[in-house]
Design a protein around this nucleic acid. Sequence first.
RNA 1: UGACCUAUGGUGUAACGGUAGCACUACAGAUUUUGGUUCUGUUUGUUAAGGUUCGAAUCCUUAUAGGUCAACCA
Length: 554
Amino acid sequence: MSEVSKESLNFIEEIIEQDLKEGKYNGRVQTRFPPEPNGYLHIGHAKAICISFGLANKYGGHTNLRFDDTNPTTEETEFVNAIKRDVKWLGFEWQNDALFASNYFDQLYQFAVDLIKKGFAYVDNSTAEEIALMKGTPTKPGIDSPYRSRTIEENVLLFEEMKNGIHPDGSMVLRAKVDMASPNMLMRDPLIYRIKHEHHHRTGDKWCIYPMYDFAHGQSDSIEQITHSLCSLEFIHHRPLYDWFIEKLGIFPSKQIEFARMNVEYMITSKRKLLNLVNEGYVTGWDDPRMPTISGMRRRGYTAESIRTFCDKAGVAKRDNMISINLLESCVREDLNKVANRAMVVLNPVKITITNYPEGSSEILKGENNSENPESGHHDIPFGRSLWIESDDYLEEAPKKYFRLTPGANVRLKNAYIINCTSAIYDENGNLTEILATYYPNTRSGSDESGISAKGTIHWVSAEHGLACEIRDYSRLFTVPNPTAFEDEGKTIYDFYNKASLIVKKDAIMEPWLANCKPGEHFQFLRKGYYVVDEDSSEKMKVFNLTVSLKEGW
RNA sequence: UGACCUAUGGUGUAACGGUAGCACUACAGAUUUUGGUUCUGUUUGUUAAGGUUCGAAUCCUUAUAGGUCAACCA
């Protein structure tokens, strides 16, 4: 019984457990999720959210939601609200109120003054071009700015002037005095404050200087006493700077840990490219069901549970990765299979007449809501002489492995009778217009003791009772798994835009039970796929989005 | 002519000097009133070359490959 469960840990968990063992941070685990409010959250953020919130949960700690709002040019309150909603929807709770880096502008300003007074920062009047030039290249060291040796007094005065707004944008910046010859470009006297006479979404016009990422993020972590600051690999070169500021300022030693961001086939996570897709009209908005945004995936019918499972199964490591879209789809099928009620909807209808069923009569049959969940109950399904079935469930000349309708074949109508196909009627152009069949009255579902067998089972909707609905069949936005991989060849993501990523079917027929469905409800359309009720639905016309199709058989 | 990160089946991810495992995919079979689900099974892997060791995916060396870094963005 004393067997230790050999659960394998990812490398971040190993670090945390090591810290816990050593008594670091007094056994406390505090993480943070620091989005910049300049766009919508996407699947890559979902991964970061699951890691930061998930780890804090696991080790009895908490997570702060902190908006990294140090660039007023691009940031807006609209995004703040959308981000909060998406994090909540994913199922996570942050500690206390949402926080903002802008809450700390006063403190950050004091940190900068402190740095200047310790001789570790200076005001530089060089232009952006000059600074870039003096930085050197990754293979060539940079050179010192002529302003690097200003006196502390002069720096204090100039920085104060910057704050007071007497210098125009771009005329000077505050730089950390680190090492212009460092092989790490970030350490070559990074800019830490710039002048921007701009209105901030929270601090209004109080400030005309704003800290740069490197002088806001780590310091905010420290102010909030974050123990483990988890970010993606691209920030690995920032870590020496992160630690340098903490050391020089003598503040709480938060620790930055980097993991590989998650890439998913057929999805892109560049905010700029996502914005372009919206602006260029390739999609209808940030929440278009084809978008890899949280809001898009929600509208597509992905459940929060399935996204969490997906992020979990994708794992955490430091190597570049491209996760198969199969895994995502497998996760959402697994979840929806348990929770989605079954319904019959005919997407491409063709009429079938049961010639030996009494004309003018009908009956009510019962269908299981979800055979995977006995407690889900049943619902009524009207049956009649005339029905709609899927046009590809009939084939005049069928191959031997075809289990559906073909002249002479027996087929079970789901939840109803076994029928025998007798013939089909075509119009003058050779198009199938109607199928004829007879039914076996003693084969009714649930009370069939006839011994008659049928190879296949198909879904159907009573022609008299069925209701029109709109189906939006979505598929991958791009024709190749990694549409950004060809930029060297001069190709853009638009060269791989999948024109068939949305196929609208306006003459689908649903069973009447569905008339009461509400936006956001999930269903499995029998033998077809998982669908979610779209917010565009009205009382008289329901709209369904394809979340994911069922696995295809033969 | 730099620094840093990484390298395990098709895709992800474990194995922490001692039997290369798990998930997804693919394929085969069983069950099935969804060609779904479920169940069973199969194929496929340690980048390369040296070294240390009784023993190396794991440690060392070198090579190779991929990624990242030169925004007054984050």
